[in-house]
Design a protein around this nucleic acid. Structure first.
Length: 410
DNA sequence: AAATCGGGGTA
DNA sequence: TACCCAGATTT
């Protein structure tokens, strides 16, 4: 879609029509705007925090995190100095954890470069870590009333329907199409209400699958409504499916009812968060282990003799290869007595990965024989709340609590 | 331009 | 399932 095409589309909108469009929409927003905690005032810090939290995250999810975050980190200076585990804990369960790390870097930038304040130009706001074109526009318009668009998924959906724009919103290059169109029709006297209004509209009325066009304040301006083509927009190319990954989770308890936890790498997925030790295995190994474990538990239920599964008698239910494989993977845990109990399986879907986790619980009789490596610790269940856990880890804990293996109380 | 980076809500 | 959500950064 060329700039000439866009000019043609917009040429049908006279200045008078644009002005009426703005008035109608701002009137609607004034009447229908949602009461949200970050809309109480124009504090740039609150608006910044809310915008970062709201990236790829729905309002209802954000609200409790927002209140807690503002309690824990009252000022930009507080955020700049906070320890990382407290940051991760504040973000635990929210996902995309680099968001909060980048926010601390940005807070430090503000302390050193901007007198501890959010800067007030789009260029300077954009120079802050973690603030891209959308968030820069949102902060500029909402906190400082600057006439900047804030192009997000809502805006692209609303505007693609308004003008039947064919630009593929999955392509980064399409952003400039929407930027151009929004700039032509947004009111410069109240960009804040306009941008927030489009968000409310996209959230409650101009929704992806079943838009409530008969309640829409922009119905008379909407080309796709006139033609009944609302559901053809926005145009979006397919995303690739998430790739499966298979893990063995080794849940190892010592005689003091403490569990071995390990801190993940400082880079990449779930950086610096804590999990039970995870070992990646192949799909075939995963399926074979699962099958054999199930048959072993079934056979044992009939015998009702063995209380524990040791590494030696692992060779019984597992095939020789799998037993040796399990020993190899658990080699440094030679003192671990693997618990015989119904198999626990946990799955978790990320945006680009699907984790399959086979949970293998074990017990350590002699603590002294076991030497922790770096980034490892033994932790009692009642202290788990001190460690930032990613969702898959929380699911494993819940599963083991339900099976009775993991006891939260002392 | 494509891949990476979480997790929940919805139909 | 598949898609969407107040996206940014890295490769």
């Amino acid at each position: 879609m060329t700039k000439e095409d866009l000019s043609g589309i917009l040429a049908q909108w006279s200045p008078e029509k644009i002005q009426k469009f703005q008035t109608d929409f701002l009137n609607w927003y004034e009447k229908e705007r949602r009461d949200l905690p970050w809309r109480e005032n124009q504090d740039p810090y609150r608006i910044w925090v809310s915008e970062i939290m709201l990236q790829q995250t729905q309002v209802v999810t954000v609200i409790p995190y927002f209140y807690r975050f503002m309690e824990w980190f009252e000022t930009i200076a507080d955020l700049a100095e906070a320890p990382e585990d407290k940051l991760l804990k504040a973000w635990e369960g929210l996902g995309y954890y680099s968001r909060v790390r980048n926010m601390q870097v940005a807070a430090q930038q503000m302390m050193t470069d901007f007198d501890g304040q959010m800067p007030q130009t789009v260029e300077e706001i954009s120079s802050l870590k973690g603030i891209g074109p959308y968030t820069a526009g949102a902060i500029a318009s909402i906190a400082f009333d600057l006439p900047e668009p804030a192009i997000d998924g809502n805006v692209m959906r609303v505007f693609s329907r308004l003008f039947e724009l064919e630009a593929d919103i999955a392509k980064p290059s399409s952003r400039k199409v929407f930027d151009y169109v929004v700039r032509q029709v947004m009111p410069h006297h109240d960009p804040s209400s306009f941008n927030q209004g489009i968000m409310d509209l996209g959230s409650g009325i101009c929704t992806p699958n079943s838009p409530n066009c008969y309640e829409c304040p922009l119905q008379e301006y909407c080309q796709s409504f006139a033609k009944g083509t609302m559901l053809n927009y926005p145009v979006k190319s397919k995303k690739v499916k998430s790739r499966p990954v298979y893990y063995l989770a080794q849940v190892i308890k010592n005689s003091k009812n403490e569990y071995l936890l390990t801190q993940r790498s400082s880079e990449g997925l779930l950086a610096n968060m804590w999990t039970f030790p995870l070992v990646e295995i192949s799909k075939e190994e995963y399926q074979n282990l699962k099958t054999d474990w199930q048959s072993f538990v079934a056979a044992d239920n009939q015998q009702q003799s063995l209380e524990q599964l040791t590494l030696d008698n692992v060779a019984e239910p597992f095939s020789e290869y799998e037993a040796s494989y399990l020993k190899q993977q658990t080699g440094r845990y030679a003192k671990v007595v693997w618990q015989k109990q119904p198999l626990a399986e946990v799955t978790h879907i990320f945006s680009h990965l699907k984790w399959h986790i086979l949970v293998i619980p074990g017990f350590l009789n002699e603590d002294t024989e076991f030497v922790k490596e770096s980034r490892e610790t033994f932790a009692a269940p009642k202290t788990f709340n001190k460690y930032p856990f990613p969702k898959p880890q929380q699911k494993i804990v819940t599963t083991l609590e339900n099976s009775g293996y993991l006891i939260a109380e002392e």
